[in-house]
Amino acid sequence: MTGPEPGRGLHPDGTIAREGAPDRVPAAFRPVVDTTRRRVAALFGPDRLHSAYLYGSIPRGTAVPGVSDLDLLLALHAEPTAADRADAETLGAGLDRDFPAIDGAGVLVFGTDTLLSPLERHDLGFFLACLCTPLLGEDLAARLPAYRPDPLLARETNGDLALALPGWRARLAAAAGGEERRRLARGVSRRLVRTGFTLVMPDWNGWTSDLALSAEVFAARYPARADQMRLAAATARTPTPDPAVLTLLVTDLAPWLAAEYTAVHGPKAPRP
């Protein structure tokens, strides 16, 4: 039996490898990462914080100074309160203000019970175990299983795209300025590329967070939608306020992708 094809983000046994590591953080981002570690510890303290993680381009080593954002996940001992979320927003805003190397800072906050729950095993659990890099505290990945690029993972990570469509349409209709449309374009396009990739992930038998590669993997299996997915990948990297691009993504590619995803993998398990 041969192992997985090289370059597809898998261990030799076919399970998905963790994609980031502390030693991959580019030099330009080490000051903000070091400060993040200190500020998280000081703001949340051991009574609230179980562990903290980086994810995205910074721990993958692909971040671009002045362009990339800093993405952080906090695991709390208890389920987050309104005060916890407010502190997370304050943390992110302060890092964005103080470090020109990043263009924004996003902080996700969850309780450890949620992250380790059976319902989230193949969504948030996978996200933490494979896409997040430990920054502080005990690594919860040790309590989670190994993951494979199979239909179950595809369904539970992105099988709820249809639920996002009404909100996207409403935001598109209400967007009054270029900055609002740019923010919407960034979020929509990233979600579409990642969903397009996981749609075909089991057949490709691998994992990647690279947007350009994700679009090409999708394009090889859905050539009729290839140009739209490549446009989504380009928009994810360089968001545009162009209403024509947003309209195409939100009203054409997105509903088709949601329907195709459900037909191939079925809907994600409902959340409360």
Rank of each mutant, 00 (worst) to 15 (best):
M1N: 07
T2Y: 15
G3M: 06
G9F: 15
G9R: 03
L10S: 01
P12A: 09
G14T: 07
T15R: 12
I16A: 00
A17E: 10
P22V: 03
F29A: 06
P31Q: 05
P31W: 02
V32C: 11
V33C: 05
V40T: 08
A41H: 07
A41K: 08
A42L: 14
A42H: 10
D47T: 15
L49G: 03
L49F: 03
H50I: 07
H50Q: 09
H50Y: 11
Y53G: 01
L54E: 03
L54K: 02
Y55C: 08
G56T: 08
I58T: 05
P59M: 11
P65G: 04
P65V: 05
G66S: 10
G66A: 07
G66M: 04
S68V: 08
L73Q: 04
L74S: 01
L74I: 10
P80N: 04
A82F: 14
A82I: 08
D84S: 04
E89Q: 13
E89V: 11
L95N: 02
R97H: 10
R97D: 12
D98I: 13
F99D: 07
P100K: 00
A105T: 14
A105F: 04
G106W: 11
G106Y: 11
V107G: 00
V107A: 00
V107R: 00
L116E: 03
P118G: 06
L119A: 15
E120A: 09
R121F: 09
R121D: 08
H122W: 11
L124D: 07
F126D: 05
F126Y: 14
L128E: 01
C130M: 15
C130A: 15
L131H: 05
L135N: 01
L135E: 02
L135Q: 01
L136P: 09
G137R: 01
E138P: 03
E138K: 07
D139Q: 07
A141P: 07
A141D: 04
L144F: 14
P145W: 15
D150V: 12
L152P: 09
L153Q: 06
E156F: 08
E156I: 06
T157I: 06
N158E: 13
N158Q: 13
D160M: 07
L161E: 02
A162V: 12
A162M: 08
A164C: 11
L165G: 00
P166Y: 01
W168Y: 14
A170K: 05
A173E: 10
A175W: 00
G187S: 04
S189W: 11
R190V: 13
L192C: 06
V193C: 02
T195W: 00
F197H: 05
L199H: 02
M201V: 10
W204F: 10
W207T: 08
L211D: 00
S214L: 06
S214C: 10
A215C: 11
A215G: 06
A215D: 05
A215Y: 05
E216M: 08
E216V: 09
F218M: 09
Y222G: 01
A226N: 03
D227S: 12
Q228Y: 11
Q228R: 09
A232Y: 02
A234P: 11
A234Y: 09
T235W: 06
A236N: 04
P239A: 04
T240F: 04
P241R: 02
P243Q: 09
P243D: 06
P243G: 05
P243T: 12
L249R: 03
D252P: 12
D252H: 13
W256D: 00
W256G: 00
A258I: 09
Y261P: 08
G266V: 04
K268H: 12
P270I: 14
R271W: 13
